[in-house]
Design a protein around this nucleic acid. Structure first.
Lengths: 263, 263
DNA sequence: AAGTGGTCTAGACCACTCT
DNA sequence: GAGTGGTCTAGACCACTTG
């Protein structure tokens, strides 16, 4: 037999596990084809069906097998490359990335973080009112000094122990912020429900020693190390949506995340 | 005149500044056309030629004007959307994002950070030797316990004042790490020069109080708040390349970055 | 109804890597 | 030289937003 012929049993020297996968593409679905493919590929990687080491190959073969055009297949693959799950090498092929790549990094919500860690977060609203913006708040939110803004002060706890003191400022009339809802969910979730799509944020993470007030509030000793985070979040038009100044107990919280390097 | 007619002077109600721009595309260049276009668009945005508020429009018009196909123009625009400089709205158009979006966030090198801030960083290598990997280092680097690894301890300063104490571990035989070079540049820059492309990293940022030794080293008082960062960096195949445990003087350093939310 | 981005196709040629 | 991804074209239809 010439090497051109391939028996159904053996596929290719590289041993491509994709060849044994079946994909379920629904052309009547409103979900884009490239997205359906990307999701199924991601699931295969997630479940280990696609080996973490090497494999996956040949965009053109894959496209004819799936009955899709090559650009469509490429778009699916590209989205997973962007997520850090796949790596392309010209002249070589596309490989599943070796190691643990899970959370590409998010504009993290403390509430969601704690909840997904099974920590059962609770919130006590200490302050929820409208005040004239101070110079720094006005600057952060791009408003005139003295404009009325909403100020929120919240104490977040898990297992009955305080974790963080959160101080946030929001532009006027952006959304309703009933104290009861704030006690049962996170601010970012409320923003999302109100149709406010976050787009970007500037963050600064630092540390300092606890003042006497902070120590009392957070059940720490005065002078204990605290993590600090200041953040301004913007919506898709670039308008500031929220400015926050947060303080975390370093003994109970750290920022965990994963970075991807853009090529 | 009916509103359908447009004089050459006035272009469109939206007043698209792109129409008055000229683009210089070189088909003989090895640089991809979409990339050339993206760069020139980015420069126009950077220099304020493209208004920060609204504008930019119609992919098909733009493509015929430039003599490119629409997918190519789309690819250029998409890359700027990914960078957070543009926003697309179906049925509306593509707009330049309002506010300050500069550094999308990087796998930051402290040396580069300080240098770009004009701080003229200097490094003192306190330790540079090979030792058997301890359990935690072995786990972080995916090696067997006791495998020989390179350990680096460095003190980084600006203006003669210490800023951070950096402790790093690298797999054996990855690259040469002459102490002289380490004193004059950053570790990540040396990795890059050695052809090691960083792909992703897991980071954890926290805080704690300085021990007596750390205080002495960093010119702080014992118990002062310190920023801590632990990071494992991986290359494109997913192999761990570096594990670091860093301590920063909170009084002199904070992590500044910008986040983009994936849609 | 008109205009926009979102998706998709079926080809093509090139640059790179490996053997 | 064979195989891979990288780029590019010239169309097409659909979904959404706006007037």
């Amino acid at each position: 037999m010439s090497p051109v012929h391939r028996t159904p049993q053996r596929t290719a020297p590289g041993d491509r596990a994709v060849d044994s996968l079946t994909f379920d593409l629904d052309r009547t679905s409103p979900v884009p084809l490239y997205y359906q493919l990307a999701q199924q590929l991601e699931a295969a990687i997630e479940h280990g069906v696609l080996a973490p080491g090497n494999l996956l190959g040949n965009e053109v073969d894959l496209s004819v097998r799936l009955g899709l055009s090559r650009p469509t297949v490429r778009q699916a693959i590209q989205s997973l490359v962007d997520k850090g799950l796949l790596v392309r090498r010209r002249g070589v092929g596309t490989q599943v990335v070796h190691s643990q790549v899970k959370r590409p990094l998010e504009l993290s919500s403390l509430y969601d973080d704690l909840e997904s860690a099974g920590q059962g977060p609770s919130t006590r609203v200490l302050r929820n009112e409208r005040i004239p913006a101070s110079p720094d708040v006005a600057a952060a939110l791009g408003l005139a000094e003295g404009t009325e803004v909403t100020v929120l002060e919240r104490l977040r706890s898990t297992h009955g122990q305080p974790v963080a003191f959160l101080c946030n400022y929001l532009p006027p009339a952006l959304l309703e912020l009933p104290t009861e809802r704030l006690e049962s969910t996170g601010l970012y979730r409320m923003l999302r429900s109100a149709g406010i799509a976050l787009h970007s944020a500037r963050q600064s993470i630092g540390a300092r020693s606890a003042t006497a007030e902070e120590a009392a509030l957070l059940d720490e000793k005065e002078g204990a190390a605290l993590l600090t985070m200041r953040r301004t979040a913007y919506d898709d038009t670039g308008r500031p949506v929220e400015y926050g100044s947060h303080v975390y107990r370093a003994s109970r919280y750290a920022f965990d995340f994963q970075l991807l390097v853009r090529p």
